[in-house]
């Protein structure tokens, strides 16, 4: 369960002392357990910044966010126990094998050698990684990398999964496989939050959507709710209307 309220964050512009860029100015939304929530928005809208705040990697300037009732700034350690984070680029260690990459995180989360071996083995089966589990990550395809990173994020059985553009660079089959894994996790009661700029992706996978543009959440509702509130049957049109664009201009 994620609850973000009026989050804002600005960064210093590269190479300048005073000049600041407002990455996120007003982000509020909720993501429930047993649901897949999509953070939908164009590039540079503030999706990654929002996810990094939720993953306790950076702190908001204003506003607050809670995960399972724990505040991201006040109780970051408790939040970290609740979340599994899959960053934009899967961030694997190229000289370690898939199994070693996952086992490393298992041990860091406090599992002993036996538990770590068992859990890692389970995840390798579950995410169908057996074919490449003992190969070094160096030459992995994007799909294989995403699977390993997902396995790593799931190793400590977090209630909440935060995924930054997980389908980026995946081919059709890998995307379908990932979707089915995420649906399974949802059905087990996990709270899943993912970011995407691909409309089709979000409409196929998500139960709930928060549309983000220029650092603000313009609209947050179920897919049907968004269609209803914007008066558009097509989600893409609904998106354009929601972020304040004009349909004729974009056609």
């Amino acid at each position: 369960m994620i609850k973000a309220t009026a989050l804002s964050k600005s960064f210093r512009r590269q190479g300048s002392r005073k000049d600041r860029v407002q990455a996120v100015s007003d982000v509020s939304f909720e993501a429930g357990n047993g649901q897949i929530t999509g953070l939908l928005g164009p590039n540079g809208a503030g999706k990654s910044t929002t996810l990094r705040i939720l993953a306790t990697l950076i702190q908001p300037d204003n506003g607050s966010a809670e995960i399972d009732g724990f505040d991201v700034t006040e109780a970051p350690q408790a939040v970290r126990r609740q979340i599994g984070f899959l960053p934009h680029n899967s961030g694997l260690y190229p000289r370690l094998t898939a199994r070693e990459n996952i086992a490393y995180y298992a041990e860091l989360c406090g599992l002993d050698a036996r538990q770590s071996r068992m859990k890692t083995g389970e995840l390798i089966e579950r995410l169908s990684m057996r074919g490449f589990a003992d190969r070094r990550a160096e030459g992995f395809s994007q799909g294989q990398r995403t699977k390993v990173a997902l396995g790593r994020a799931l190793i400590h059985e977090p209630s909440t999964l935060i995924l930054d553009e997980p389908t980026n660079g995946l081919d059709v089959m890998a995307t379908r496989q990932l979707r089915s894994i995420l649906r399974q996790l949802r059905d087990e009661g996990h709270c899943i939050l993912l970011s995407s700029h691909i409309m089709q992706e979000v409409s196929m996978l998500c139960d709930h959507v928060a549309i983000i543009s220029d650092g603000r959440v313009a609209l947050a509702d179920s897919i049907d709710g968004i269609r209803e509130r914007t008066g558009q049957a097509d989600l893409e049109d609904a998106f354009v209307v929601a972020i304040g664009g004009r349909l004729e201009a974009t056609e």
Binding site: Q77, R80, F85, G91, L92, Y93, Y105, A149, R152, H156
Partner: peptide, 13 residues
């Protein structure tokens, strides 16, 4: 640079 630091620092430690 490999961007493996982000997930590492999001772990409960």
């Amino acid at each position: 640079e490999r961007q493996s630091l982000e997930p590492l620092l999001s772990l409960p430690m």
